[in-house]
Every structure is written in C-alpha cells, then in structure tokens.
C-alpha cells in the first residue's frame, strides 16, 4: 500500500510556452511581412524616384530649411502643450468617475475621426477673427490667431493630442494602483503620488503617447493649412511645403518628403534608444 498525497504534483513553472508545437508560425509571419512591405514600399518608391543629382542644392534652399525648422519647433511645442493638457485629461478619464465620463471619452477621439480640414474650419469658427471666442479676443486685444505660428501649434494640438490622451489613459488604466496606496501610506498627498509614483510608472505609456503625438503633429496638414494658412517661414510647415511643391515640381516634393522622413526617423530612433536603454 503506497501513501498518497492529495495535493497533486508540482507544475514546472519555468517551462517556456511554445506555440504551434515549435513549427514555424507561417500564419503570423506571412501577413506580418505583407503588412511591413505595404508600409515600407511607398518609401522605397520615394527613394527610387528621388532626384539624387539635385538633392544637395535642393536641400540647401532656405525655404526647405525654414519649413523644416518650423515643423520641428511647432511639432515639439504642440507635444509640450499636449503633455501639459493631455496627461491631466488622461488621468481624469482613467481615474475619476463623473456623469458624462463616457461621452467625454468619446469626445476626446473626435479629432481622430473627423477630416483634419474640417477640424481646421471648426477651429476657425471658434478661434478665428469672427469666431465664437475669437471675436471677443479680437475686439478687446486686436489679436487674431489664424495665420500665425501659434495657430500652427493650435491646429497640431487639436489633431495630435488625442493620440497622447489615449495612450496615457491606457497606461494609467493598466497601472497597479496598489503602488499609489503604498505611497499614500508613506504620507504622499494626491499631487505627490501623481508626480512621483503614478507618472513615473506610466512613463513608457506617456513617452509612447508623446512620440505618437509628435509624429502626428509633424505630419499634420489639413487642419494647419485651413486654420493657420500657408506662409513661408511663419506657417508653412514641411507637409504644406511638400503639398505645394507637388503642384509644380514633383521632384522637389520628393526631396522635401525624404527630408521629413529622415529627420523624423532620426528623432524617433534616438528617442526610442534612449527610452529603451534607460531603465
């Protein structure tokens, strides 16, 4: 007669999970490669058709430099504004309950859904010289926002902030709230908990959101050209320059697109490296 244990046998906890019995996962890899090719091939097309011989002279044109500089500064400013407003908004959506929360959450995504040009018109109707709000500003201060560099930032914030909010909200939802409780027991007020625990622990989500936001702001075209207009050095960002170059000289448009592509790739790769290497 053998003694028996009712407890059951110990499970090997560290055994790696193998999917599909170790066979090559064709079902995933094939569509994945198709997807990658679909996204990358258009860029390959740009590279293939780039007018390499005149590339240098075109790159040195002051218009290109101005548009690039303006794009980089406005996209960065738009990201900063989005962080300032979007992170608290994400916190509100993720962590509080109030009547109309679901509606508010849906409203945040509106700029993602409507065509940016319509967004630009909407901004004009509100913030323009004759806009719902803008007319008072204009009447009292004589200031008119459209056609100024700040207007570019406003248009970019409008279309890009939702990316940040959604990303940060997701990170805040996924965060383990017990750490916040731990901080509270150590004497941290709500503000300190948010600043020193919630935000640092949600940092990857915030950073991912900021990168998305920056990229979207950099590529923003429709709302910008509608709300801020197009004037070289003041409101003409790279996408606008690309569009207008396309009207006259597709070669120039290709060059501008390549510049935009390379600069944004460089920034994103650097950012990602720093983000991944920093623990």
């Amino acid at each position: 007669m053998t003694p028996f244990r009712p407890g059951g046998r110990a499970r090997p906890a560290d055994a790696p999970v193998r999917i599909g019995g170790g066979r090559f996962p064709w079902l995933l890899v094939v569509p994945a490669l198709l997807g990658l090719g679909f996204l990358v091939l258009p860029f390959a097309g740009l590279l293939a058709r780039a007018p390499w011989s005149t590339l240098g002279t075109r790159l040195l044109m002051p218009e290109v430099r101005d548009a690039l500089l303006l794009s980089l500064t406005t996209a960065t400013a738009a990201t900063a504004v989005s962080l300032l407003l979007g992170v608290p908004l994400a916190w509100l959506l993720a962590r509080t309950r109030f009547p109309g929360l679901r509606v508010a959450r849906a409203l945040v995504t509106v700029p993602l859904v409507i065509p940016p040009v319509v967004g630009g018109v909407a901004l004009l109707l509100v913030l323009g010289r004759n806009g719902v709000v803008g007319q008072y500003v204009h009447a009292w201060t004589g200031y008119s926002l459209p056609f100024t560099t700040p207007a570019v930032v406003v248009a970019q914030v409008f279309v890009a902030m939702p990316f940040l909010v959604i990303s940060v909200e997701g990170a805040l939802r996924a965060a383990d709230r017990r750490y916040e409780e731990a901080a509270a027991t150590l004497g941290a007020t709500r503000a300190v908990v948010f600043r020193r625990v919630t935000l640092p622990m949600a940092a990857p989500g915030v950073l991912a959101g900021a990168v998305l936001c920056w990229s979207r702001a950099l590529g923003e075209f429709g709302a910008t050209i509608m709300f801020a207009g197009n004037f070289p050095g003041r409101t003409q960002t790279m996408p606008l320059a690309v569009y207008l170059a396309m009207q006259q000289s597709p070669d120039a448009a290709i060059v501008l697109s390549l510049v935009l592509l390379l600069v944004s790739l460089a920034v994103l790769v650097c950012l990602r490296d720093r983000w991944v290497s920093a623990p």
Partner: peptide, 14 residues
C-alpha cells in the same frame, strides 16, 4: 499676404 492658400476654394473659405 496673411496666407498663401493651396487653392482658390481655400482662399474663398477664408
């Protein structure tokens, strides 16, 4: 000019 619009329609909208 305040702005150099991309087409006539955009200029008219303003």
């Amino acid at each position: 000019p305040a702005t150099l619009e991309r087409d006539v329609k955009a200029a008219l909208t303003k």
